[in-house]
Structures are given as structure tokens and as C-alpha cells.
């Protein structure tokens, strides 16, 4: 199961990303630095150095994700070497679409209905203070469509599908399945990574639409008992003051978030090393990086899209 019990093989010169041998080479190599330094002494005087190291670390990952994005993109291009077809395995793509959608739909639905309710609960003191019951539908609709809907659904999708993608790819790396694909002359990026990435982007887009609808329904249901705003006046307020662009902004954001989750989860999955604990660390790093990326790009796209 782990490196220790696997039959030992003579270390072969491998691809630079040779992943499996890490445990077996332990004898001559000092304890791997990847251990999250549980007992190591920490000094506050090292703060500038630590911050610099953290910055370099972030830069390394951002760069690595950029390179991965480039390599995935070239596989989407119709090149002569591939008879003008993208290197996308359609069968895997269908499976990935099914898995990504199926896995996250219940969780997205549950999240959305509560989020709709929470929006109204939070707005209650403000609305009652100003007596602005006529704009509840508009306020809830604006917040859900443009901001809260895409973000929260992306965060849940990140936890469910993104983390799962990292876990699956990471497991394939540590159990040498990726190496096995390479020896069969199958390109792991085109065969494994690309379909999953495409599926994640497409599915997050679709789930955001569904989630938006459910959240709005949840909000309109909560508005009645809490604020005395009837369902019809809720929807009238919403439809009168919002236009297609408000919906579009949220959907464009969901595509951006989908790309972030797809790239970061694939990157950290393929970078996994160190057996089962390594897979756990990779998933952890992936969900954290995706969440940070989602907020950073939300910030940028909010200002870019006005």
C-alpha cells in the first residue's frame, strides 16, 4: 500500500517528476522537507524570511498553474499532428460531466436554498428600518445573481468536485498509474486532465444557473413569513429592476471560477507525492488555493464587469 511494503525495484532514471521513488530513497536523503514541520522551532525574528518564502511559494504555484493552463490549451487546439482534432477523450469527458454534475447537484441545491433564506433573514433589520419592502426582491436578486450565488456555489463545487479531482489525480500519481499511462504512450494531460477540466467548467456554469434559481425561490419563500412581502411582489420587484446583464455578470464569473477550480485542482493533483498523507496534503492545498483564487478573480471581475 505504501512505499514501504511495495516490492522494491532498482531505482530507474525516470521522468523528472518521478514520484513513486520518494519513499524508497529515504535511506540516503535527509527527512523530506515537505513534512509540515510539526515540531520544528519557529522564531518570530524569521518573519521577513518566512513572508518572502511564502511569497516565492505562491509565485511558484501561480507559475506552475500558468504553465499547466498553457499545456492544456495547446491540447485543445486542432493541430496537424492530431489530424486537426483536439486531444480530448470524449468518452472520459462524458463520464467526467456526469460525475461532476451528479456529485454536486444535491449539495448545490441544499446550499442554494439556505443561502436564499439567509439573504432575506439578514436583510430583515435593514428593510424594516427603512420600510423598504418593495425593493426586497430586487436586493435579494441582485446579490444572489451577481455575487453570492456564483461565489457560494463555486466554493461548494470547489469542496466537492475540485477536491475530488485532486484526490483522484493524486491517487493515480502516488499509485504510479500516471507513469503507467506514459509507458503506454498515452498523454495523461489530454486523456485525464483535459476532459475533467472541461467538464468542471461546463458543470459549474450549469449548476450556477440551477443554484441561482433555487436560491431565488428560497428567498421568495422566506420573504413572506419574515417580511410580509408576498411572492408576487417579490418577483415583480426583482424583474422590474434587474436586467440580463446582472445575470450575465454572475454567469461570466462562474466560468472564471470554473477555470480557477479546474486548473488549481489539476495542478495540485498532478504534483502529489508521498503516499496517502501526500494525497491529503494535496487536496488541502488545492481547495485553499482555489478559494483564494476565486476571491481574487471575483475582485478583479467585479471591477472589470462594472
Amino acid at each position: 500500500m505504501t512505499a514501504a511494503t511495495r516490492p522494491r525495484v532498482v531505482p530507474q532514471p525516470k521522468d523528472a517528476r518521478g514520484t513513486s521513488a520518494l519513499g524508497d530513497l529515504g535511506m540516503s536523503v535527509p527527512p523530506p522537507g515537505e513534512r509540515p514541520g510539526a515540531a520544528a522551532p519557529r522564531r518570530w525574528t524569521n518573519l521577513p524570511a518566512a513572508m518572502g518564502a511564502a511569497l516565492l511559494n505562491v509565485a511558484t504555484h501561480v507559475g506552475g498553474i500558468g504553465i499547466l493552463a498553457g499545456r492544456l490549451f495547446t491540447r485543445l487546439l486542432p493541430l496537424p499532428s492530431r489530424r486537426f482534432r483536439p486531444a480530448l477523450d470524449v468518452e472520459v469527458l462524458m463520464k467526467s460531466l456526469h460525475a461532476a454534475g451528479n456529485r454536486s447537484l444535491p449539495i448545490v441545491a441544499l446550499t442554494a436554498i439556505f443561502v436564499g433564506g439567509i439573504m432575506v433573514v439578514q436583510a430583515t433589520p435593514l428593510v424594516q428600518r427603512y420600510g423598504a419592502t418593495s425593493i426586497v426582491g430586487w436586493g435579494a436578486g441582485y446579490a444572489i445573481l451577481r455575487e453570492i450565488g456564483p461565489i457560494l456555489i463555486a466554493l461548494m463545487f470547489n469542496g466537492r468536485v475540485g477536491a475530488n479531482n485532486t484526490a483522484e489525480l493524486g491517487t493515480m500519481v502516488v499509485t504510479e498509474q500516471i507513469d503507467a499511462l506514459r509507458t503506454l504512450a498515452i498523454d495523461p494531460l489530454g486523456y485525464l486532465a483535459l476532459p475533467r477540466c472541461v467538464a468542471m467548467v461546463a458543470m459549474l456554469f450549469g449548476l450556477t444557473i440551477i443554484g441561482d434559481i433555487i436560491a431565488l425561490v428560497g428567498a421568495s419563500l422566506a420573504a413572506g413569513p419574515l417580511l410580509g412581502v408576498g411572492t408576487s411582489s417579490f418577483w415583480n420587484g426583482l424583474l422590474a429592476m434587474l436586467d440580463e446583464w446582472d445575470l450575465m455578470v454572475g454567469l461570466i464569473k462562474s466560468i472564471v471560477f470554473g477555470v480557477v477550480i479546474a486548473l488549481s485542482s489539476t495542478y495540485f493533483g498532478l504534483k502529489t507525492s508521498g503516499g496517502a498523507p501526500g494525497v491529503g496534503r494535496a487536496v488541502n492545498a488545492s481547495v485553499v488555493a482555489s478559494a483564494a483564487g476565486i476571491f481574487a478573480l471575483d475582485f478583479l471581475s467585479t471591477f472589470a464587469l462594472g
Binding site: 522494491r8 524508497d24 529515504g26 535511506m27 523530506p32
Partner: peptide, 13 residues
């Protein structure tokens, strides 16, 4: 003082 991560399979056993 060695950490288990830096040992060979036989040493860990």
C-alpha cells in the same frame, strides 16, 4: 533524533 520519513523500509520495520 531521526524522523520516520527519512528511514528505509527495513529501518522503519
Amino acid at each position: 533524533p531521526r524522523m520516520p520519513g527519512g528511514l528505509s523500509g527495513g529501518q522503519r520495520k
